[in-house]
Design a protein around this nucleic acid. Structure first.
Length: 570
RNA sequence: CGGGGUGUAGCGCAGUCUGGUAGCGCACCUGCUUUGGGAGCAGGGGGUCGGAGGUUCGAAUCCUCUCGCCCCGACCA
């Protein structure tokens, strides 16, 4: 491809709303263009990277034994009512009506359609297991889209769904898919880690997320440097720590006058105690009624863990306006003694605690020496806080590390949630009708490409991993000298013949402009043909990542570049 | 959904307070010079100032309504 005939529009100035590196560079390099909030055009350069990513994913999915199909992006509401998600999914689900006023959705995911497809086509255990995937545009009406392709509303996703007769069969496919995911990210040279995850809206039993490690990641993951335990902090458990437990110097519940101490830090400062010695009380409104959660004063409650423990459909922090009537005490002085909440939970870090300093449910008042079971109902203990750096690993006790990551893939063992709701069944060997056991496997195509940029760039632009670079090589002609143009053209043609993805920068531009553009777009390899070195029969080549220039005769450079591309692809 | 901002040329911005011929930089076009890391000079094209209504002799500017977008928070694969 010749640059002069290709559609590339690089920007010298940074669009004002670009927040993260990948978004800024993709916009500047002319890969994407924003059309509306969270909705982008993939310009030719960007599309090439997207398509290369898709090709890698297809290759690995096919290798893993999955069959590609393509489902509609517009789906009838009936299917979503059948699964129950028409009610449950919320505003993120884009609902639309057709001319007959019938309800449809623009698919954010495809469990319903695939389950509908499979239940019609498959009736016998002989036809199972089966694994189907598609690469397709989804729409999720995110509250706040941001970060370009990393959190768009419209995005391209690979989603696969597997159907089985048994959980063991699902486990096998799950492992095969997990390996396929690792291969995919490995092929893109992405520094990634699979972690245990919460199943969220999709549901199911086990689930892993694939995280690309990057500063700009929206998720935090814990990782054990010793045993490789990894988990999203939403989910991560750590051993409970039974640290410096103070004995209670009194056996009698005592009132503590604590004027003007709204926050846990205020109380700690007033009593001259570290907040870890205090107990923080959180109150949530849920569909099961108000729930009180007690955690160590220096820890943050983890709403996902709490919600999962309760089995609640919805849950949110109790609003200020309803606080007093619900708990019987003012905000800032809430505590379990005399509470109106039906259920009281406590984080397992409090299990061995002897001295409980808690809110008094009255303004400017706390209690000291409170005893669970005596002064307030014995709480339900469990893991209700978010793990932090240095917590002991749940498996081996080693201090955990915390990283930021971008969730590029998420795989789930769904079990029979959808197959039961939608009667997707098969007849087993004994003629018994059983629900199929399902798995589902998502992978964000655009997000993966963006995360590659987050991991690999410098001040001047993108540094593409070879397999997803829009072009593998750029040939830059320097100057209008006839011999230069002739040699550059020959080099370009020969690379094409070798099957290399090469862009020939044949524009009538100054060298500086061409080099800056090449660095910005980030072609892994560059060949520059200029009059000075050509006078000695030499041309120049360099890698984008270190820019170290090497000279050689054209045929020699060609051979080296072809070799470097092949090495970069394998 | 709550709070805060912002909308002026393809991109980045000034002008709005104090109403009076719509500006600057980048990009684009023409010419000359220049040519190994985003050139210089000269000339040029491009705007119903987000939209609707109002006040006024006169509105980018003041008033009312509306829409889009951005940031923070809450929420969420």
């Amino acid at each position: 491809m010749r640059w002069s005939r290709f559609f590339i529009n690089t920007l010298r100035e940074v669009p004002a709303d670009a927040e993260v590196v990948s978004q800024r560079l993709m916009m500047r390099a002319g890969m994407i263009r924003k059309v509306a909030a969270g909705i982008y055009t993939y310009l030719p350069l960007g599309l090439r990277s997207i398509q290369k990513m898709e090709a890698i994913v297809r290759d690995e999915m096919n290798r893993a034994g999955a069959s590609e199909l393509l489902m509609p992006s517009i789906q009838p509401a009936e299917l979503w009512m059948e699964s129950g998600r028409w009610q449950k999914y919320g505003k993120e689900l884009l609902r639309i009506k057709d001319r007959h006023d019938r309800d449809f959705v623009f698919g954010p995911t495809h469990e319903e359609v695939i389950t509908d497809t499979v239940r019609d086509a498959i009736n016998s255990y002989r036809q199972l297991p089966i694994n189907l995937y598609q690469i397709q545009t989804k729409f999720r009406d995110e509250v706040r889209p941001r970060f370009g392709l990393m959190r768009g509303r419209e995005f391209i996703m690979k989603d696969a769904y597997s159907f089985h007769t048994t959980r063991e069969s699902l486990d096998e496919t799950y492992d095969v898919m997990r390996d396929a995911y690792s291969r995919i990210f490995h092929r893109c040279s992405l520094d990634h880690v699979p972690v245990e995850a919460d199943t969220g809206n999709i549901g199911g039993s086990a689930s892993h997320e694939f995280m690309v490690l990057a500063q700009s990641g929206e998720d935090a993951v814990v990782s054990c440097p010793n045993c490789r335990y990894g988990a999203n902090v939403e989910k991560a458990t750590s051993k409970f720590f039974d640290d410096e437990v103070e004995p209670a110097p009194s056996e009698v519940l005592a009132e503590l006058h604590t004027p003007g101490t709204q926050s846990i830090d205020d109380v700690g400062a007033f009593l001259n105690k570290p907040t870890s010695q205090l107990i923080k009380t959180l109150v949530f409104d849920t569909d099961l009624g108000p729930v009180m959660v007690l955690v160590r004063g220096d820890r943050a409650g983890n709403e996902i863990k709490i919600k999962n423990h309760l089995g609640a459909q919805w849950m949110e922090m109790l609003s200020d306006t309803r606080f007093e009537e619900t708990t019987g005490g003012p905000i800032g002085y809430c505590g379990p003694v005399g509470t109106k909440c039906a259920r009281v939970l406590a984080d397992h870090s409090l299990r061995g605690r002897k001295r409980w300093i808690v809110g008094g449910n009255r303004k400017d008042m706390h209690y000291d020496f409170a005893v669970p079971g005596r002064d307030f109902p014995e709480p339900e203990f469990g893991d209700f806080t978010t793990a932090i750096e240095g917590d002991p690993c749940v498996r081996c006790g080693t201090p955990l590390e915390i990283y930021r990551g971008i969730e590029v893939g998420h795989i789930f063992k769904l079990g029979t949630k959808y197959s039961e709701a939608m009667q997707c069944t098969f007849l087993d060997e004994s003629g018994q009708r059983q629900p199929m056991v399902m798995g589902c496997y998502g992978l964000g195509i655009g997000r993966t490409v963006a995360s590659a940029i987050e991991q690999s760039h410098d001040d001047d632009g993108i540094i593409w991993p070879m397999p997803i670079a829009p072009f593998e090589v750029v040939v830059t002609s320097v100057g209008k000298d006839e011999a230069v143009l002739r040699t550059a053209t020959e080099v370009y043609e020969k690379l094409k013949t070798e099957g290399i993805d090469v862009l020939f920068d044949d524009r009538d531009e100054r060298p500086g402009v061409k080099f800056k553009d090449a660095d910005l777009i980030g072609f892994p390899l560059r060949i520059a043909v200029g009059a000075k070195s050509l006078a000695n029969g030499q041309i120049e080549w360099s890698f984008r990542k270190d820019r170290a220039k090497q000279l050689g005769a054209p045929d020699e450079v060609l051979a080296r570049v072809v070799e470097a591309v092949r090495a970069g692809l394998s």
